[in-house]
Design a protein around this nucleic acid. Structure first.
Lengths: 132, 132
DNA sequence: TATTGTTATACTCTATAACTATA
DNA sequence: TATAGTTATAGAGTATAACAATA
């Protein structure tokens, strides 16, 4: 077809595939890696995390449970609200998160290998405009 | 960050969200809609379908079962190989597939609403280059 | 023997509804 | 009363391994 939308859908499938592949090599699901990457920068509350991942809070509970069982994240009590907790990465979690991020980026950049540098820059800029 | 890869990952998440939303409005899962769209053009064998969806054949069996239960696809025997079958859309399946495709495209195009036409064309072209 | 597809089984992912504890 | 998070439950998605039927 050639429309922007069709191109985006195709790309999205490709990215998913790469993401799933990388996650699997670490013994994780793509959802678990998404979670890991989100809490890598800072401790995040369950509510905020659920919104970022577009999940019901009850779905997130289980997801965090499973990643915590693998010792990649932990729940810490929120200092200002005794109902709440915040999810943080462990050292091992940070390590795995970094590996996944690096590998995903590496493989996606490889997909753009045959493109001219100028085109790559243009693409990055235009795609960034979309997600504003 | 601003790298191509990071932009692609962000876009992929956006597309996923749109796709899931549209599927849900039709009472379907995104996986079921992907299946539906793939068999919309022509009857496809289970093996080819599994490869296109990046699924194990056993996973596909269940997925097709569930979509068939909703009367959106049917299995027809392969004329040349009595082990095999091909999956085809029903009239209702074609209808739903068309709605989903139209809605996904509409919402994704809307995301690019604020872009100049020239930029949209450039984006479509560059993204197409990636998935070659 | 190899291939196409299904079945059996076990987990993961997800939503809805009801619940607990705190704000 | 409202909010943060969990639990209970049910259904969907997925992989692995074993299987049936046909090539």
């Amino acid at each position: 077809m050639g429309s922007v939308a069709d191109a985006l859908v195709r790309i999205s499938r490709l990215v998913d595939r790469v993401f799933t592949e990388v996650a699997r090599e670490q013994g994780l699901t793509p959802q678990q890696v998404h979670l890991l990457c989100l809490v890598d920068a800072r401790a995040v509350g369950m509510k905020e995390l659920a919104e970022a991942l577009d999940l019901e809070k009850s779905s997130l509970t289980g997801l965090v449970d499973r990643v915590a069982r693998r010792r990649l994240v932990t729940r810490i009590p929120d200092e200002h609200d005794r109902r709440a907790c915040r999810v943080t990465v462990t050292d091992e979690g940070a390590r795995v998160s970094a590996i996944c991020h690096r590998e995903v980026v590496r493989r996606l950049e490889a997909m753009a290998d045959h493109m001219a540098d100028a085109d790559k820059q243009t693409l990055a800029k235009l795609v960034a405009q979309l997600s504003d």
